[in-house]
Amino acid sequence: MTFEHGWITTPVTADMLRGHLEVEATAHGLLPHRLPARARRQIPDDQLAVAEAQPSGVRVVFRTRATAVELDTLPTKRVYQGFPPPPDGVYDLLVDGTPAAQATVTGGNVRTITDMFTQAFELTPGPPGTARFTDLPAGEKDVEIWLPHTEVTEVIALRTDAPVEPVPDSGRRVWLHHGSSISHGSNAASPAATWPALAAADGAVDLVNLGFSGSALLDPFTARAMRDTPADLISVKIGINVVNADVMRLRAFAPAVHGFLDTIREGHPRTPLLVVSPILCPVQEDTPGPLAPEFADGTLRFRATGDPAERAFGRLTLNVIRDELARIVAERAADDPHVHYLEGRDLYGEKDYAEFPLPDEIHPDPAGHRRIAENFARLAFGDGGAFAVTAA
């Protein structure tokens, strides 16, 4: 800790971070990861390598009387060649659990995707920057800075106008969640406004979000990471990526789901385990993948390219996936009273789609994230839900 011109500089250490599985020391600071090194060595593509390093749900946590806070970071931003760059990622600052301020960091590295299909890219180095928050409430408080869910972020240092100290363990239950880009937070307004973050706030739990854009593919290394991560509540949202990547047929899907759940159960034999099927997605309800991106008038949309007739030969669609997940969970529940099933269209179904359409045909908008969070909190954390608090 150093003092300069009224500011106190504190290096960010691993014990100040929440929501990650591992921290990597870099030349600049700390890079939080959402998969451990053993799993990262087995990642087969750049899509997941980037997604797990984007810190969805990861936050810097400390206690302070400071009314001004600065966080130095080195972001790596992703842009698509030929299209305007997206807005800078948002940093959400919460005071005692309540959103209080937002900031962005300019500059940083730029990862330019030169081919949407192969994900080929060029990396242009850039300088670190600073997220600044001022006029915070006076008095001692717990502060959380949620890192951008859309940018790989190396955390360098924290500056405050009053000392900081660690926040003791909250004692709240830990919710470990795995899912696709929707769980990662695609199209959410900010990192604390992804549906898992909003649902965790409603459920008064601490979130560890293993939502990986394009990469909820029943990978064994992800299951092992979940097996080895302490948690009081576990959910897996399975299906959309398996369909839109067209990675397997029905014959392979059921054993893969069983194997994924079996691995989690090796480390969490009696933890409430909630299996969630896909939300409504009209383009893939009855049409197999693979999914193809389309750009029209500068807008990205997706369409399914498979033949619905091939469902008879084991090609997967969302309706096929839902039926199979319901069957698998019912089968397992005969021996495992702590496994539960949640129909994804109860989180976001036809009425929700009519009110909050999917802008790109796949991902909900910010209002859609709020609706999914509200429904999940009611169905999972509410009375009778898989995650409801029960009397000792």
Rank of each mutant, 00 (worst) to 15 (best):
F295P: 00
V247P: 05
D262H: 11
L250K: 10
L250Q: 12
F302L: 10
C281I: 15
D262I: 05
P290I: 14
G259C: 05
T263N: 08
A245P: 01
A292T: 14
A296C: 00
R249Y: 07
P255R: 09
P290R: 13
V257W: 06
D297G: 15
T305I: 11
V276W: 02
P293A: 08
L300N: 06
R251L: 02
V247W: 00
A256C: 01
F253V: 11
V247E: 00
I264A: 02
L280W: 00
T263G: 02
T305V: 11
A254F: 00
L274C: 04
T287C: 05
A304I: 07
F253N: 12
T271W: 06
T299Q: 11
T299K: 11
S277E: 10
L273I: 10
H268S: 05
D262A: 08
R270F: 01
P288G: 11
T305K: 09
N244S: 12
A245D: 09
H258V: 12
F253E: 11
S277L: 14
R249H: 07
D286V: 11
T271S: 09
R270E: 14
D307K: 03
D246A: 15
M248R: 05
R265P: 04
D307H: 10
D297I: 09
L250C: 05
S277I: 14
L300R: 14
P290D: 10
V257R: 02
L261P: 04
R265H: 13
V276D: 01
D246F: 08
R301H: 12
A292S: 14
L280T: 01
G298T: 03
E285G: 09
E294Q: 13
E266A: 12
F302H: 14
G289S: 05
I279Q: 11
F295M: 12
V283C: 06
L274Q: 01
V247C: 14
R303G: 07
P272F: 07
T287I: 15
L261E: 09
P269C: 04
H258P: 01
I279S: 13
L300F: 10
G306R: 03
F260D: 01
P288Q: 04
L261K: 12
A254L: 00
A292I: 12
A256G: 12
A245V: 06
A292P: 01
T263Q: 11
P278M: 05
L273T: 06
T287D: 06
I264R: 07
I264D: 00
D262C: 12
I279A: 15
C281P: 06
G289R: 09
R265A: 14
R301V: 13
L274S: 03
I279V: 15
G267A: 14
R303K: 04
